Measured scan of single mutants.
Amino acid sequence: SKTSNTIRVFLPNKQRTVVNVRNGMSLHDCLMKALKVRG
């Protein structure tokens, strides 16, 4: 089974995003990807 960790990230202006960290990806990469999608 694939394991994925879901991390809630609290952003300024009362924004919130959820990042799924996959195996083999660093938290930083996942964060940058999530913020790019939002931006």
Rank of each mutant, 00 (worst) to 15 (best):
L31A: 05
K33T: 02
S1R: 14
G39S: 13
K36M: 13
T3I: 13
N13H: 05
S4D: 13
K2M: 13
H28N: 09
S4V: 07
R8S: 04
S4C: 11
V19E: 05
V9L: 02
N23H: 10
H28R: 10
K33Q: 02
P12M: 05
I7S: 01
P12S: 01
G24V: 15
M32R: 07
I7M: 07
S26R: 09
V9K: 05
T3N: 09
L31T: 05
N5Y: 09
V18L: 03
V18I: 14
T17A: 04
L27R: 01
R8C: 07
L27V: 15
R22F: 03
A34E: 03
K36T: 09
V37G: 03
R16C: 07
V18F: 03
N5K: 12
V37L: 07
K14W: 05
T3A: 15
P12R: 02
T17N: 02
P12T: 03
V18E: 03
L35V: 06
V9M: 02
R22D: 04
R22G: 07
K33G: 02
M32S: 05
M25I: 11
N20T: 11
T6A: 08
K33I: 01
F10C: 04
T17F: 05
T17P: 00
V18D: 00
N5S: 15
K14T: 06
T17I: 01
S26N: 12
N13Y: 08
T6S: 10
N23T: 07
N13I: 07
N23S: 11
V9G: 00
V19A: 09
R38L: 03
L27K: 03
K14M: 08
V21S: 07
L35P: 00
M32T: 10
A34V: 02
N5I: 08
G39D: 14
T6R: 14
S1A: 05
L31Q: 00
T3P: 15
R22L: 14
S26C: 11
S1Q: 15
H28L: 12
R16P: 01
N13T: 09
K33E: 01
C30R: 02
Q15P: 01
T6M: 12
V19T: 04
H28P: 01
